[in-house]
Amino acid sequence: MQGNSKFTTDLKPVWCRGCGNFGLYAALTRNVFPSLGLEKDKIFVVSGIGCASRIPGYMDTYGLNGLHGRSLAIAQGAKLARPELTVLAVGGDGDFFSIGAGHLPHAVRRNFDITCIMVNNFVYALTKGQTSPTTPSAPPGDSTFLPSRSYPPVNPLLDMLSYSVSTEASFIAQSLSTDIPHLSRILTEAIAHPGFSLVGVLSPCVTFNPPHLFASIKDNASYLVEGEPVKLPETTGRNSWLHDPGDMAHAMALARIPITEMPFLGVLYRGAGPQ
């Protein structure tokens, strides 16, 4: 997977074979950075702590694998001090939605030109499989989702997409780490977007996800294409509409549909950069 792109280091990733993080890594180093014509010394990748957050070590850019949940704070300081940098904040669902959740709405509000890549593998992987705020819990016996480990069970899960939309970030998108061409297109657009971009990357943790979880995500996914009708779950009972990423009301309607029912992939919302 490493390829010979000039954006990789010779450090071998520690990820398990088949881990979705390889997809993100390939997308960034092989497609996104080269296609944007970026120079490696003008890229700063700041991450939190977790499996996904290991990524800066493998990319020959400036990189910091910092503290659990704090990538955005460091990223914003760097971007303000040196605006010509392309700054990426990368982390897991634990990073952005649990320990570091307090930072996210403020980063959105400031709308600095930073791309926030939230790798959602539905679990705390590095610490070996504990539930995360995005873990879809299920009654015992259901093998698709992780059994709830809270008594009483904590539900509903914190849906990345619906949260992102509620913040009205100026760019909101979701993709799959296993669909590298799609992910590459989305990330390229996110980085090019002049304001703060939130990109959810749904990603399999082959070690700690129940085997059917990611398969069900892929099976149920609905790809959003600008100008084309949106595929909605039958249960919504609504008529479809033509996808328009400029329409926040539509983004909100999509965000109401639980990820366990239908994950939407593509650019949900594209608003203005900083004024």
């Binding site: 700063f44 955005l72 914003q76 300081g77 001090a81 930072h103 403020h106």
Partner: peptide, 26 residues
């Protein structure tokens, strides 16, 4: 210069590190 009221002290200190890494005295 650069001045920002952060959302908390964790963020303030983190921003100091981010700015400092780029060479700014923060």
């Amino acid at each position: 210069g650069v001045y920002l009221q952060a959302e908390d002290e964790i963020a303030s200190a983190g921003m100091v590190l981010g700015a400092s890494l780029t060479g700014m005295r923060a």
